[in-house]
Design a protein around this nucleic acid. Sequence first.
DNA 1: CCAGACGTTGTT
DNA 2: GTCTGG
DNA 3: CCAGACGTTGTT
DNA 4: GTCTGG
Length: 440
Amino acid sequence: MCGRYAMALRPSQVRQMLQDNDDMPVNDAPADEGDGAPRQSYNFAPGYHGVVYRADVSDRGAGTSRAAHTDRNTDSSSSTTTAATADTTADTTTDTTAADQTYPPTDTPNASQTRYKLQSMKWGLVPSWTKRNPDYSSLLKTINCRSDSLATPGGLWSGMKGRKRCVVVAQGFYEWLKTGSGGGGATKDRVPHYVKRKDGRLMFFAGLWDCVRYEGEGEAPLYTFTVVTTDSNERLRFLHDRMPVILEPGSEALWKWLDPGRDEWSKELQGLLRPFEGELEVYPVSKEVGKVGNNSPSFVIPVASRENKANIANFFAAAAEKKKGGSLKAEAGAEEGTGVGEGGQDTALKSAEDPGKTTSSGGMGTPKKGIKREASPSPDPGEPPVKKGPSFKTMSPVKEKPQRRGKISATSNTYKSPTKAKAKADGSQKITKFFVGNSA
DNA sequence: CCAGACGTTGTT
DNA sequence: GTCTGG
DNA sequence: CCAGACGTTGTT
DNA sequence: GTCTGG
């Protein structure tokens, strides 16, 4: 759940919306473009840099008052905290924290010193103690965090649930409905659905973030995030049994989640992670969204809508055209039969909300069909890790063995053997583990 | 003490 | 990093 | 999350 | 089926 979402706004637009519509202060925000800038995409996938909103605390999180700026009163934390302990019971009343008052926390004890900011972070949480750049498969396992995992002590999330909470800014998210599984174990078709707020406002997923510096001193810190999931609400149950935790803009719940004063996990915080109670809109969208790298505003338009009628017409027209083109079987014909309604997608784009800046630098020039691949020629500034390079054939199955004496210990990173499947015979295939490390 | 796990989803 | 298992 | 690959030999 | 890439 929530393995794909839509977020095609620039940080500057988001900032404006937060301030103007939601009373959410933004004291800092990433540049719209450039190195490490968040990606704007209607098909936002794991590994991309996205926009998160959080209290501006140090890289080590709330409560570690090594505090960044905010000159005076470095102490911050402790004040509001305390109440966070274990007691949920009376959510209102007596809570010494500014429990339910005007939440934009301008009047909690040190709140006036709390600054909030938008920041670009990569989707797929990498714990701060990680030594080496993990690969996608590792990242994929940390794109979500189950709310119930947070309820139990220890584990992967223990390091951040107390001090590194954030909300992930999105316009909506996708969920794939599996059909045809009837029970006979038939072939499953997957139909993508888009889910957004009925009132059209931004969606804020409860999230956790962390900051890591891989070995190699001069490296810049990498910020990453995960999206907290919970059970689906009634509305989405037909689609899936899980959904991201969605917090209301400017709500008390949202401010509690982001409150740096609450620097220890508590029942109160745990209690915020419930299925969404507001109204959602859900509808099927183009299957083109399934392919990572495709990006189009049409992905958030109902596939059966008037805006898409044109597409459908185009689709059949195109199909007819193709057929007419006749028996070019082997060649081109087969090549482009991607199957479903692509037709003149571009027409749809027009009607969608600001198609103006649909993508990154790509420019509007659609390469081929309607849907554009979003990546600029090269992998894209900074996103997909270096990986690209040498194929598995050219690199030795490095095992990173202990370099003779000295401080060996660490990094027993396994590199996936090129022989993979083949080598299965010996069964010992333990795959990559990147969250290893020694260090202190 | 050190070594190793630490996660999610979906599918069966 | 923290926690568990041996 | 979904899509797409899943290989070898020999030569540079 | 499993694994990688985005």
